[in-house]
Design a protein around this nucleic acid. Structure first.
Lengths: 202, 202
DNA sequence: GTCTATATTGTGATAGAC
DNA sequence: GTCTATCACAATATAGAC
């Protein structure tokens, strides 16, 4: 599959990433991964011991893409509305690069919710900082009184949902036109930003 | 499993519903369903022929819950903002009854996106009607100029996402407190409604 | 490191007794 | 209608040759 010689381990990991993220843990066989990597199952076990460990490697990597460290943006000294715009822009851009990640993570997290707790510490993100920021802006009178947690979830929802619900949106709303879907995603940064700002500004 | 005698067919369907929606098509074995129903695999095949047909029955039923006919609300003669409030209230209430449906449908739709097209005709919903409604309200000056499609997706996102992302929200934002999550969901109708109305009103 | 061959268990599905 | 027994096959995983 690969003409250039990479580490075999990396080739396997790359194949696993592709197949797992496309089909999920249970929808994936080690045979399928081996075929994709152009090797055989035994070699896969040689490098990663078993299916679970290989999956774990893929999952962790994907998780950090799902919860990126974009929250640092919110802690800078920019104008608040510019922060929001930059956050939405950056997050949607990141998801455009890996559009399959949201549904993959959501599904696998449901299969094993305990993982979230383990993962929390690995990312440096603390929702409390976000809450504090919003409360400060309310006191300053920059924005109207809103619940910070619901606001956070609203932002994430509007950024993430269109990717997780791609088949529904494309098939149901956009008459199954793939080009329409691409245009829709491209327009979203602007649409979401203005929607949010209008919702919270005083 | 059932003391009262129901139709065996219904008992199997009920078990299949539970197991499929919890674990997805590929995460479910016919054995698992048979155990849940308190019967054996052979009987399952007697009534539903194969796994696919049984799944199809479960999926179709679930799909109509995911895309409910709440759009009729929007076609009534109420005040526009009251329509929005009623839509959000009703939809979140419906999802509260079946909180696992969103992620189930999203995942299974990805596995077979062609289904959406088939399903479109079965529901009587037409996004064009929604678009026309929004455009009318813009002309009337009730709301500011927004893209109707993005607005529709924003509404759906804010209603659906908290259910699809339950493990993430509960584990990551709410420190893994199940009661906190319940309170969060209860508060959402009000939060989402006011967020939307502030975002679109002139 | 990489392969073939194989062990072992689980899967969807059917045959046939009752 | 409902069961047990069984088939054919696919799954994960390991042993052992090279």
């Amino acid at each position: 599959m690969e003409l250039v010689h990479k580490d075999t381990e990396k080739i396997i990991l790359e194949a696993a990433r592709k197949v797992f993220i496309q089909n999920g843990y249970e929808g994936t066989s080690t045979q399928h991964i081996a075929d994709e990597a152009g090797i055989n199952k035994a070699l896969l076990h040689y490098y990663f011991r078993n299916k679970d460990r290989l999956f774990e490697a893929v999952f962790m990597e994907a998780f950090t893409k799902m919860i990126p460290n974009l929250f640092v943006i919110l802690q800078t000294e920019m104008d608040f509305f510019e922060k929001i715009e930059l956050f939405v822009d950056s997050y949607i851009s990141a998801l455009q690069q890996f559009p399959q990640i949201p549904l993959f993570i959501l599904h696998e997290l449901k299969r094993n919710p305990d993982r979230v707790v383990e993962m929390i510490s690995s990312t440096g993100i603390n929702p409390a900082l976000f809450i504090a920021l919003i409360e400060k802006e309310i006191r300053n009178g920059t924005i109207r009184e809103i619940d910070p947690l619901h606001f956070l979830v609203n932002m994430l929802a509007m950024c993430i949902f269109p990717f997780a619900a791609k088949p529904m949106i494309q098939g149901f709303i956009l008459k199954n036109d793939a080009q329409e879907y691409d245009r829709f995603i491209k327009a979203r940064k602007k649409e979401v930003t203005s929607f949010i700002i209008n919702a919270i500004k005083k």
